[in-house]
Design a protein around this nucleic acid. Sequence first.
DNA 1: GGCGGGCTTTGACTTCGATCAACAGGCACT
DNA 2: AGTGCCTGTTGATCGAAGTCAAAGCCCGCC
Lengths: 252, 252
Amino acid sequence: MNKYGNNSGNAAERLDIHNSEVPEVCAACEARHGGICGALDPQQLLALSKSSSRHRVSSGAELVGDAEAVDHYSNVLSGVVKLTKTLSDGRQQIVGLQFAPDFVGRPFKDESTLNAEAATDVSVCSFPKAALERMIKESAGLEHRLLQQTLKELDEARDWMVTLGRKSAAEKVASLLLLIARNINPYADPESETVEFDLPLTRADIADYLGLTIETVSRQITKLRADGVIDIRNNRHITVPDIARLEVRTGA
Amino acid sequence: MNKYGNNSGNAAERLDIHNSEVPEVCAACEARHGGICGALDPQQLLALSKSSSRHRVSSGAELVGDAEAVDHYSNVLSGVVKLTKTLSDGRQQIVGLQFAPDFVGRPFKDESTLNAEAATDVSVCSFPKAALERMIKESAGLEHRLLQQTLKELDEARDWMVTLGRKSAAEKVASLLLLIARNINPYADPESETVEFDLPLTRADIADYLGLTIETVSRQITKLRADGVIDIRNNRHITVPDIARLEVRTGA
DNA sequence: GGCGGGCTTTGACTTCGATCAACAGGCACT
DNA sequence: AGTGCCTGTTGATCGAAGTCAAAGCCCGCC
């Protein structure tokens, strides 16, 4: 079994013979709508798809190791990837969550400065670092998409800094639930007042994302449930009957 | 007095007549070494400099307001700019510090999502949003520089998330002093073990950057001084006799 | 069905940083 | 010199979140 877990397959095997058309594997791909591949024309898509491949990564498996040489990038197609940093004494902090169709990787650096790990079972489309960097040089649109994605991540990181630095434990937990509710199902009606989803994170993950302990996270979730803001089944399945009530709990 | 404070002057007034040469105002500019203007050739530099102008912004003045329409971008030439976010009830968090020759502004968005304010007296080179965005379309190199700068800021934001989420108050204060020591004087020998600088932030700013109160910041600084890790004169001038000893205090 | 291990919850107690309050130093202005 | 303001320091007390400990729940496995 390779580092991606099981069930890998090379995308190039099933390419359409008409190379002016969108490659079959890319045709219904998340990453072409909102993801970086949306910047590519059919010919470029074909070129990239020749060296790309889809993988399933099982929960807990590592996509990119901290301080490890990076030789490939990925697009998340489904599932959630957590980006973590660890201090020398073992304290850990999740610094970002990547949902479909986000890009995973740090362009223009040979070594990763963080750890990317599957929080749930994940499927990704991976391609060699060199192939993408070559394509960046040829396609201004691709670099533009990368810039847009990076700016989006920077905005999100800065929003989260406010959560980490200035919110109470109760507000932090509410903020996380809201973040997940808004990202986990990209096709949900954003106007709908009731939302339902499976938590992609364990209590330990939540604690690491919020800068809390698992006990504190558990207590705050219990309180939200006791107050009727959320409903929980099997510790993971969450129902938010009224998103606006959850928003109030985030502290703005 | 305009919103930049005093002493503004239009750069185009003193342009060299040989337009294949680097414009005089840009010749010795910080932003051409490491800043985004380094990506421009002399002709492009001339074009941009025609609509750009240098300003002095006095400490405390606002460069960009939150939720305000953005019509210009800037490069920091000297001094320190703080980027802040504020919750509806007034709690504040500094989400980034910009030193020379950093770029200030959020490309491709009409409204700012944060507040940029001069932490010290600052000098900047500003240019219209439209001029830069036009130039981005023409020069792939410029967009590449912007991407590099954005990736750098994202790395910094994520490092800081670890500080906010997982470090003790003592480690936070040490981390901040180290950050400033490393950024305030770009020409200092990075190998030198003793460093000296003026704090560009008030205790309140430090508290807002670290997610603490001013009292806690003050106590931790007092402790570092008592332990001989730093020396302070006039509340602002800091001497670090041995950078390695400060690093140990950051919790790594 | 019963066993075992991982995840989660709950409770008792401790601690770090926040809050409240008083005061000290520096500086501008009268 | 004297006053007032702003920034920073120090002390006393409080409370939110951490730590330590025990028990419950869920699920796979024998």
